[in-house]
Simulated scan of single mutants.
Amino acid sequence: MRVPLSILIYQRVLATPDPLFPECLHARRFEQQLRLLRRWFRLMPLSRAVTHLAEGTLPARAACLTFDNGYAEHATVALPLLQRYGVPATFFVAAGYLDGGCTWSDIVTEVVRNAPGERLNLGRSGFASYDIGCPVRRRAVIEMLLAALRLLPPAERAARVLAMARRPTPTMMSSDQVLALHRAGMEIGAHPLHHTVLSSLSNAAARAEIAEGQCRIEELIRARVSLFAYPSGKPGEDFEQRHGLMLRAHGFEAAVGSARGAAGSGSDLFALPRFSPCEAGNGGFLLRLAGNLFTRG
């Protein structure tokens, strides 16, 4: 019998609800999900689940929690709740963002969110002037900018984003916070060094991003790093089979993407699917999670 493995992917876990993005996960909603997960699933570290998956010994109702990017609130908000409920988790960290970094998308969001007045002129960054007179329009401008910038080459995107805000507010963890997660018994995995989509890089550049990202995290926590998460994570679009071969060559044991579905005994360990738990209500959350079990990755 093929027992499925549910792997959940979390990114932001805010301390309080965000009025501009009410669907974003926050502490109270995350705590509700932890209670449900602990009641209905057998929660285990991803490394142990991968071993069981490879050996065909995965227990029923197995599930893993994973966190991407390395946001500071993973240490300040998520960790205390995980400890309270005795839930293990794996945190994928982009080492290049530690100690004062933030993603380009967070910079864009901050600029539009905090802009004074009812219009925002982004001429210096190659855009136009936009009406931001109400929350709905501010959010629409954020989504438009993110969609446009996502299509640009990384260097051009970085230059245009930095033209919007030369001193963005850091959103990522410090090295000490990563150490705190590790010392609390949480697993630490790696992203590429600069959280760059691997398919956008040459083979040589992709290998360098993988190796340096892994090396810096291992030096920080003084332990082996054997789990990897692909940025964005769409199979065939953001990563390909060649990238899994690169990860094997660097000693990784498994990698996760963002395709829907549950992993099974025949799943590629270097392209494991994950479920994104974004439902606000408990019923909707459990229904989506149950439905995910019938989509095999």
Rank of each mutant, 00 (worst) to 15 (best):
M1R: 13
V3F: 10
L5P: 03
I7K: 00
I7R: 00
L8D: 04
R12C: 13
D18K: 02
P19D: 01
P19I: 03
F21T: 06
E23V: 08
C24Y: 14
E31L: 13
R35K: 15
R42A: 11
L43V: 14
R48L: 12
V50A: 06
T51L: 15
T51D: 15
H52E: 07
H52I: 04
L58H: 00
A60M: 09
A60N: 09
R61M: 13
A62C: 05
A63N: 13
A63V: 13
C64V: 04
C64R: 01
D68Y: 00
N69E: 12
G70T: 03
A72V: 15
H74S: 15
T76I: 02
T76E: 10
T76C: 06
L81K: 06
L82M: 11
Y85R: 12
V87D: 01
V87K: 02
T90S: 12
F91M: 07
F92Y: 09
G96D: 05
G96M: 06
G96P: 09
C102P: 08
W104L: 12
S105Y: 15
S105C: 15
V108S: 13
E110G: 08
V111L: 07
V111H: 03
V112T: 03
N114L: 04
A115H: 03
P116S: 07
G123A: 13
F127C: 08
A128F: 13
Y130N: 11
Y130Q: 12
D131S: 11
I132W: 05
G133L: 10
G133T: 11
P135R: 08
A140C: 07
A140H: 00
I142H: 06
E143V: 13
L146I: 14
R150T: 13
A155L: 08
E156P: 02
R160N: 09
V161E: 09
M164N: 01
Q177G: 06
Q177D: 03
R183I: 06
M186P: 04
A190Q: 06
H194I: 00
H195F: 05
T196W: 14
L198P: 03
S202N: 09
A204M: 02
A205S: 14
R207M: 14
A211F: 07
V225P: 10
S226P: 08
L227F: 00
A229D: 09
P235W: 03
G236N: 07
E240K: 10
L245E: 15
M246S: 11
H250V: 05
G251L: 05
G257E: 02
A259Q: 06
G261I: 06
A263W: 02
G264W: 00
G266E: 04
D268A: 02
A271M: 07
L272A: 06
P273R: 00
S276H: 14
P277V: 00
P277Q: 02
E279S: 10
G281W: 09
G284Y: 11
F285N: 04
L286A: 05
R288I: 05
L289V: 08
A290C: 12
A290V: 08
L293Q: 10
